[in-house]
Design a binder for these strands. Structure first.
Lengths: 343, 343
DNA sequence: GTGAAAGCGCTAACAA
DNA sequence: TTGTTAGCGCTTTCAC
């Protein structure tokens, strides 16, 4: 059923029907009701392509997810974030166009989207410390919001981010307070800004407590189980080994635990593991109380917030720039478990 | 730059330019080259909305992901699958429209997509044992392929699936061969067909080896860390406790390991864990050799295969129905690690 | 081999 | 308050 059929069936012009359905004030209440009824009954939905063509709005938001080609992993956080954003789009009649971008094609992909008029704006995922995409998007005039921040912010841009630096400072401080000084950081790829900020937070805490930052206790790569396993394995073989790990994702933590098991060490006795990522905060001292706190919802909320920010931006470009820094819920700091023995 | 501008710039009609660009044979080679050059130079891309309106094809595929509202988790496997599908779409000029669907709205969402002409077909994710969506899609005439299968297949449908039943039978058999008989299965929500099939595979192996299936050793729920933890914790408290776990996802396995640690038990000595999901296969006997095998690529391949199947279906509905059963790569069966001690 | 013109389904000036 | 008309940018029939 299209507009023409609906209007013929009602004996009205397409214009009137369109107006009645789109809430224009100049339609009489009686016809509006009649139209709405018939539309609902006939399960009428405006053809999205025709509507877009007529209005010049694609009514779709692009999410471009960079694909690390080394291990071909898509960040699992992403799904949760998108679920939040998706909800906002639905409420506003937008669709979500998902693109997986190999990093080498990235520029072409954005240019393509803009030229095809396929999206009204984009969400930039996984920003690097140095991020050429921002200048590109500005150049082609495509509205965008960055999920995360960049470190080379010469130009203003819209962003929303969790406070990675503070969260990791907090996590590190927690371990220090428990008596640890040999703490290993198994971090994500530090050319990505979120990992870089986490590292800074880690270093903040170490420095403020007068502890030496041991570069051999810091690793940075794509967050896979294997990476966690191999890194922890080699660290645990050292004469001077870490007494605690901070893992930048639970996938990595899974690998760390495997290595700890193989080394014949015990959680809470010889070692502690702290995991932190956007999705969940987790503290394991081998111990007595349930020290696990899921904060998935915060990722979803971030998705919702980011999406709303973009839609506002599209409606009113004058609002530029906007930003929001979310405090990560590192509730793990409230843990009351026993302190693990020192090395 | 649009078609009109491009054609004016070239002194040709829109028709000729369009034909030249779309590979129609009746264009002279010289003008074709001239047109292609100018198009490339002007970075011309046909407006996707206008093209869709003219051709009647949305040039987009819908992925509808059901959202479990209990714990609000999106299956992380999904990202990897979509990455594969996305690649196929790009090759064929399609876009990917992502929808997160709360289960109660589901029917409306599909009807909406079809009526709006926003997609040419859909991929059905996370099918249940009994799946009303298939009849619905058939009714509204929207081409689809199911990632997975259903158990109530009265009607023929297109699907692609990994052999969950066989994989879990194999995993169980591996533990049995190592001397285990008290094996716990921590499974996904068994109203979802993948989990149901995994359970059947587990039971197959137990039955064929003459082992009793202990219902208290089988749990089924959404695959979260907490679920794994709580279930394992309560099982390990029993006088007669399991000597091995099969976890239906690595997230669950993370919880199981936490419980094992808290119970003061040791991997490889007291217990084994096998993890299997589409993304990775994993065997941990606490042990000597690296018994971890990532098979992420298989999920991605499944995504690619599913996408191609759908595009073929759209081009030629006569091919219906098609299907493909992928053998899971449970390479863990090759493990040579020492057998854990019996209970 | 090329072009004119109609039409895809909708919105939005402009008239009435 | 309603209708007429002209697009939006493309494809496609039909004529040359």
């Amino acid at each position: 059923m299209n507009l023409k059929q609906l209007s013929e069936q009602l004996g009205l012009s397409q214009t009137t029907v369109s107006r009645a359905l789109n809430g224009y004030p100049e339609v009489s209440e009686s016809t509006r009701i009649r139209v709405q009824l018939a539309a609902a009954q006939g399960n009428y939905r405006p053809n999205s392509r025709a509507m877009s063509l007529a209005t010049g709005r694609a009514m779709s938001i692009g999410h471009v997810v960079p694909l690390a080609h080394q291990h071909d992993v898509v960040n699992p956080i992403f799904a949760e974030f998108v679920a939040g954003a998706s909800q906002i789009y639905k409420q506003n009649g937008y669709e979500l166009t998902l693109t997986i971008a190999e990093t080498r094609n990235e520029e072409a992909i954005y240019r393509n989207m803009a030229a095809k008029c396929a999206v009204d704006g984009v969400i930039v995922h996984s920003p690097k410390r140095v991020e050429p995409r921002l200048a590109l998007l500005k150049e082609i005039g495509l509205p965008y919001v960055v999920h995360g921040r960049v470190s080379d912010s010469k130009t203003a841009y819209n962003w929303i981010d969790t406070n990675n630096r503070r969260a990791f400072k907090q996590a590190t401080q927690l371990l220090i307070d428990l008596g640890h000084s040999d703490i290993a950081l198994i971090n994500g790829d530090e050319s990505l800004n979120f990992a870089w900020l986490r590292r800074l937070g880690f270093e903040d805490a170490m420095r403020e407590n007068g502890l030496a930052i041991n570069p051999t206790f810091m690793a940075s790569a794509e967050l896979t189980e294997t990476f966690g396993y191999l890194t922890a394995e080699s660290l645990l073989k050292k004469a001077h080994r870490p007494s605690a790990f901070i893992a930048s994702s639970y996938v990595v933590a899974l690998g760390i635990r495997r290595a700890i098991g193989r080394a014949g060490l015990q959680m809470g006795k010889d070692l502690s593991v702290i995991i932190h990522d956007d999705e969940l905060s987790y503290f394991d001292n081998g111990g007595a109380v349930p020290q696990f706190t899921a904060t998935r919802s915060s990722v979803r909320e971030a998705g919702m917030l980011t999406a709303s920010m973009l839609l506002k931006q599209i409606d009113d470009p004058g609002l530029f720039p906007q930003s929001s820094l979310l405090e990560s819920r590192l509730t793990v700091g409230l843990s009351t478990g026993p302190a693990p023995a020192r090395n």
